[in-house]
Design a protein around this nucleic acid. Structure first.
Length: 287
DNA sequence: AAGAGGCCCTGATAGC
DNA sequence: TGCTATCAGGGCCTCT
């Protein structure tokens, strides 16, 4: 589900609801997420106040009143849902994998506040919760990640210098979190369409003009997606149940066989596997 | 050392 | 109806 825009939407709605709230109780139903939940997890979190909810790339960062920070990654199928404490966990409006018949399925972690609780649901368990000890460890945790498209160190020169002698295709570059962080499989296709670059094109054959388009469009596409509440291609919603609408603005993603949206282009959108991930593009206007 | 591929896991859907 | 195969928004590890 979540790339940078979706995580940002979750961050915004979560931040509004839980800032300055104190954690009263934590329930861990399944410790076996991508990273195993440590035994002292509850103890660390209980009685902590949430100071702020931030985000880097696809990671949520909950700043706690002690020095600890809680890092949350949603993986492929993780969702966060806020539920009033007097309500049962009936199928959540956030969890597209959740069956209405099995209300508690995959609700691995619950964090209780006074009047409501945060429910973490994740069928595939590729997501994780991680306790980070202090600010220094947080910086260390992210040190290998590349800049976000909005970061000032992500400029045309940075792109060009990284691509110039590489055989790796540009689609894989955009998915490489150590080069640029926050872009996932949907937005990689969308950014390359906007930039008129074929996703299979090798890094070394991308010129400065094309770097400039990547620079511009990676910001533009992500910002537009955030503006529209993210992409709800299955059933993504924010923590209060509001759907995003950027899926209605997809130019290529999941549009195989349909007409290219560029005026005067007669191309049809193609689907191609690149490193086992489906990739959508127009072979007419993406060169 | 760069880059491709496998793997972690469950569920929805398509095809027979 | 029921089986199997394929695919899904991520990221880490291993192998060449």
């Amino acid at each position: 589900m979540p790339e940078l825009p979706e995580v940002e939407i979750v961050r915004q709605s979560l931040n509004k609801k839980i800032t300055q709230k104190t954690i009263k109780k934590v329930i861990v139903r399944n410790r076996n997420l991508r990273i195993k939940i440590p035994l002292n997890f509850k103890k660390i979190l209980e009685n902590q106040k949430i100071l702020n909810v931030e985000r880097f790339s696809k990671y949520l960062i909950l700043f706690l009143s002690g020095k600890n920070k809680l890092l949350i990654h949603l993986g492929m199928s993780g969702t966060i849902h806020l539920l009033e404490n007097n309500k049962r966990n009936f199928f959540s409006n956030m969890s597209f994998y959740n069956s209405p018949i099995l209300p508690y399925k995959h609700n691995h972690i619950e964090i209780f506040f006074d009047k409501f609780r945060l429910v973490y649901n994740d069928p595939r368990r590729f997501g994780f919760f991680e306790i980070i000890k202090d600010q220094k460890s947080l910086e260390k945790r992210f040190e290998k990640l590349g800049p976000e498209p909005f970061n000032s160190s992500f400029d045309i020169n940075y792109i060009y210098e990284n691509l110039k002698d590489k055989k790796k295709n540009i689609k894989n570059f955009l998915l490489d979190q150590n080069f640029i962080s926050g872009i996932g499989n949907i937005y990689a296709s969308e950014i390359l369409y906007m930039s008129k670059i074929n996703p299979a094109k090798e890094g070394r054959s991308i010129n400065k003009t094309e770097c400039k388009r990547i620079f511009k469009n990676s910001k533009l596409v992500l910002l537009n997606a955030i503006k529209r509440g993210g992409s709800s291609i299955r059933d993504f919603k924010d923590v209060l149940g509001n759907k995003g609408s950027f899926q209605n603005n997809f130019k290529v993603y999941q549009r195989e066989g349909q007409k290219c949206k560029r005026i005067d282009c007669k191309g049809l959108i193609q689907k191609k596997n690149i490193s086992n991930r489906s990739t959508f593009f127009c072979s007419f206007c993406q060169k």
